[in-house]
Design a protein around this nucleic acid. Structure first.
Lengths: 180, 180
DNA sequence: TGCTATTATATGATTAATCATATATAGGAT
DNA sequence: ATCCTATATATGATTAATCATATAATAGCA
């Protein structure tokens, strides 16, 4: 399960609580890479701890609930380094829109165009989100090795959305022109 | 659940058994769109039947196991037509490679390049598979409305792989050049 | 003779992800 | 006075997908 390895990567940067992971990491900087639910984060932390890849110390707080601060162990670092260098099978992408188009022959052209336009809107919004994340990254003037890699990743995500948008434009134009 | 609607779409083309769906549809023409496991196909057929969207007649065979032939109902057709025109949220894509790159700062350049090269190989193979499917489609000279839509879908899948491959080439070149 | 492939359906088990809900305290807003 | 938000963790339930295995008959191959 890769979520475990995402968390190992984040804990190698610095020690964090489950709450930190959710609010500082998964909600912001890696929401576009690996979104994760709060429940799943806590359960994965439990698993990582019982594997011996992270340890936990409880910080007692008085006017707040106690915090469980997690740190990566040496075994955890070894596991992460190994995972980072292992090839994984391509993830499967199942897209409802493509299925709809595949079976859309019975629909009138306007219905198909409407579908494509709605997808275009959603994809434009997603591209805008990527650009917001990029803006945050570029506002930081340091060009560390880490930063460079993060920008490389973001470039693919952006280019992919752009390819999708270009294809949507062409598809909309094709269907509109053939119905004239 | 979209698998249910993929099956409705396939049963609208013609009546089929679970076995037909698996061997003629999911293993071939839509493996790149919506791969599905045999167990899941049979269980989804059960659900669709209890929903009243498909019906089933048993064909008794003597030297083979009996066949359960499924047909779409009017309610099923109505459901499919409605689903085909409904916008669905963008599917989430979680890519191990991008996570690896995001956390790869600690790895030596050669290790990163090796990862990218392995991904390139896998992506090239996938693109080749898409071209095989396209070849089968082009060998059929009819250019029906359905065929046109199928090719449109395939174009996106191919372009997406090409974008990925182009990005991989650039990423490999970038990392190689900076380590000189 | 035994092994494998083909045709055909069914079920048990597990994983990963998501949703909902629970608990507990403090502070600010309406 | 009540409601919402922030901080913090935990658990129950469900869905979608995958893997493994079971049954059962025939045909072909080595």
């Amino acid at each position: 399960m890769s979520l475990a390895h995402v968390i190992l990567g984040l804990l190698q940067q610095q020690e964090r609580t489950g709450y930190d992971l959710k609010t500082e990491c998964f909600d912001d900087c890696i929401s576009h890479l690996w979104p994760a639910d709060q429940a799943q984060i806590y359960r994965t932390l439990d698993k990582l701890e019982s594997q011996g890849w992270i340890t936990c110390t409880v910080e007692i707080q008085h006017e707040r609930p106690n915090r469980k601060v997690y740190r990566i162990t040496e075994a955890g670092e070894a596991e992460l380094t190994h995972w980072l260098q292992t090839h994984h099978p391509l993830p499967v992408l199942r897209e409802p829109l493509l299925v709809q188009l595949y079976f859309a022959a019975q629909l009138p052209d306007e219905a198909i165009v409407y579908l494509l336009e709605q997808e275009r809107e959603a994809r434009q919004e997603k591209l805008a989100q990527c650009e917001t994340i990029e803006g945050l990254s570029l506002s930081n003037p340091t060009a560390s090795r880490e930063q460079k890699l993060h920008r490389l990743v973001l470039n693919l995500v952006k280019q992919r959305e752009q390819t999708y948008l270009d294809w949507l434009e062409k598809a909309i134009a094709t269907i509109r022109s053939q119905s004239d």
